[in-house]
Design a protein around this nucleic acid. Sequence first.
DNA 1: TTTATATTGAGATATTGTATCAACACTACC
DNA 2: GGTAGTGTTGATACAATATCTCAATATAAA
Lengths: 152, 152
Amino acid sequence: MSRLLKQQQALLPAPAHELAAQMAEAGYKVTQPRLAVLRAAVALDKAFTVHELEQWLLQRNESPGIASIFRTVKLLCDLELFQRIHGLEDCHRYSISGGHAHHLICVSCGALKSFDNCGLRDLITTLEQQTGYHINDHVLELFGRCPRCLAV
Amino acid sequence: MSRLLKQQQALLPAPAHELAAQMAEAGYKVTQPRLAVLRAAVALDKAFTVHELEQWLLQRNESPGIASIFRTVKLLCDLELFQRIHGLEDCHRYSISGGHAHHLICVSCGALKSFDNCGLRDLITTLEQQTGYHINDHVLELFGRCPRCLAV
DNA sequence: TTTATATTGAGATATTGTATCAACACTACC
DNA sequence: GGTAGTGTTGATACAATATCTCAATATAAA
């Protein structure tokens, strides 16, 4: 079976392949169900829900049990390869993290841009001085409409 | 019953009283269950969960049905008197909004500071130019430790 | 190949809500 | 003061997201 696995990995689009490699590096096995989730996430190419992953995989008759999809998403979040998206309506979407912390999301189609330079340093310094808090983390998500949806 | 209601309102701490007034202004009845939720939220004085509201009220034997607590929280969110908090671990906390959009939250005790000037205008302008998106909303939450928890 | 460990899938369970609907409580009108 | 209409409540059912349990299976290491 491990030969089959290697064959499939070789056929993966680069991003899923890279994510799988990072999973392996972290000491986790790159199994078929986990690969399937990675492929789905890469293919969807937007902020996705677990349900959307499952639907994508069901259409291709390669869906693992829903528990395994949830487990894989959680594992990838813990490894900081996936990231939870904080939406305006709900917080049940995830994205491939790419090491970036923040997102710009199209409320119309779900298209997503990641960026890391959030320019909050001054605000954080000011707030620390004003409040006496020691700030060490933050959530920042921006919402709007992407060029394609604006053109429609 | 309406005499009793007025008597109790007069005993409220100011913030709950004000929130109740705004509910009334918006055309909603200020009932005992709704007042109870307001009192609990004010008393907790931090980012709270619906479960925490219920516990606070149960301890005082004045808890409405859980459905009414959820309904009241939702109503107050719709009226922008409460606001959902986007936490690092989950997004099931709420705060009294005070019209401000952003929060600084102590991860240790849940203490909460609100502020409105988030200084994101430059970032938003830059991102709009870089991406072609039209940005019209955002979520920003900051996390750290409050002075009291830092002192422990 | 054998052994030990990690992972899976199915189903039960938990958590956070929302929908339904009969009973109740106000309000306005007569 | 009664009555009708509306808003609200509480109990329960239901839904969506997610985790737990545990036997069966897959994988890796010896």
